[in-house]
Design a protein around this nucleic acid. Sequence first.
RNA 1: GCGUUCAUAGCUCAGUUGGAUAGAGCAACGGCCUUCUAAGCCGUGUGUCGGGGGUUCGAAUCCCUCUGGACGCACCA
Length: 565
Amino acid sequence: MDYKKTIAQRIASIINIDAKEIEKMIEIPPDAALGDFALPCFKLSKAMKKSPKLIADELVSSIDKEGFEKIDSVSGYLNFFIEKAAFTEKTILNIISEGNCYGHSNDGAGKTITIDYSSPNIAKPFHVGHLYSTAIGNSLYKLFSSQGYKAIGINHIGDWGTQFGKLITAYDRWVDKDALEKNPINEMLRIYVKFHEEAEKDPELEDIARQHFKALEDGCPHETELWKKMKDLSMKEFNKVYDMLGIKFDSYAGESFYNDKMDAVIDELEAKGLLTESNGAQVVNLDAYNMPPCIIKKSDGATIYATRDLAAAIYRDKTYHFYRNVYVVGSEQTLHFKQVFTVLKLMGYDFADRCIHVGFGLVKFEDKKLSTRKGDVIFLEDLLNEAVSRSRELIENKNPNLENKDDLAKKIGIGAVIFTYLKNNRERDIIFNWNEILNFDGETGPYVQYTYARGRSILRRASQEDFSAAPDFTDMVTPEEFELSKLLSAFNNAINLAIEKYEPSIVTRYVIDVAKSFNKLYNMHPILSCENKGLKSARLKLVEASTIVIKNALSLLGIEVVEKM
RNA sequence: GCGUUCAUAGCUCAGUUGGAUAGAGCAACGGCCUUCUAAGCCGUGUGUCGGGGGUUCGAAUCCCUCUGGACGCACCA
């Protein structure tokens, strides 16, 4: 039964206020001792011209109490206590029958969501900053998919732009071809950093770089060949990281993919009278929107990222007919996306309103920013490897007899890193700290995985016992059992909120709560040695339901579970 | 200077969209493994919710203002 709805209907039948209005007012008390649901009567006070306390008192005496243990009136609040056994039984059995699909729905059937995430730049290292977009985007992909949306994961690879002019300039002068063979990203990073050092002394290099990029756009063979080579080498490296993370995309259409689609966009802007010339560049003036102009074509005739983003948005609309077009890109680009969406709107594209920029904070060191240009970066691969070897060490320490230790270490270590990235509000900056990210105690990925493994261990033992009894929930009334069941039943709320706010951390927080609640119960109430047969069986069901929810929730975050650890 | 955004315990952060005594984790200290995995559980302490106004029966949450930080502000992405 949907308690909020039921309560609202019963109250609506007594007083003359719409049930939906009442439903919105119902809340969950801060302390379970106060009740499971509550209706604050302060808002009703004005309309009914009575004191909140009197309203609550009158409702208590007249409301239908079926399905509730008791209903209290406490200082203006109407507090509802639901019948525990009936609730836990229904919740738990429902979760088990839905299994891997628990939490899923068809709410988004027929709607397509394009999600642009990860999008690293070719010829640059995939560093710890890139994981933010990658992890958030991947989780959103799974969240939307779980609700029946058709999600399209797009890796908008940064394989075009002025940086290639710089790289080609640097390649021509300083590349070490042996080093490039052995460790392509390192060598490309080295010459990219050297370019910026040299350009400080000799600004002419910047001009040469721009010329090379223009030549690339015009299809000159030398530039094109080098571009291809660097792209192939980079993609190989990126795919190594995606394999470690277990992430795949539906499309790798990067910036270069739109190279032949930009002229049409520029023509269209021209035809719609939106282009003006300013200091030799072609721009769309956005004064009316209190924004700087959006540059479409630079004064040297080359395009810029805004042009490519316009072409990409139009392409995605035509190709996917999206319901939402989501960009998981750092918050520092907020203005850029506002400009692009506004230009789309000015072009007459209504889908502009369905384009969403999902921003997130910076990953930085304690004292400074990560900077590819200066070479101040930590490779994500190094972080992941470090996390894996740390968890491998812990396994050796704590449980050396486990099988497949390497595989376990990988799932735990990488899961820990992803979990950390998805734990907090995405708008927050992440201050990169090795000790913190490699700490596996407390509210961490390993904690949740450990909880799952504990639950699975109990279920394994139970299945080996010669035990069978029909589950009987009538005695399942302790606060721990009831609280855990309530949490498990709230999985969908967490998912829906996460989707509404494009915020995976809501699911991360939720699964931490489930794990905490489970561990508390685990320590207080024996399960396998429970003497009441019916209750033991019911508790086993609760354990099973808990493992299902943990597994499904972690899966929405892109994290795997382990059976033992 | 303009714009966006943030400020909650020593540190890192939650806070269910305005509700009941503001909560976790880490760090510190103490307790719990001959009983289901101690990567766990239990206990102990700390707050002018950045300051000041306002709206409201009621504000960490909404509005204004000040202070401090982050990010952005046309030919990088």
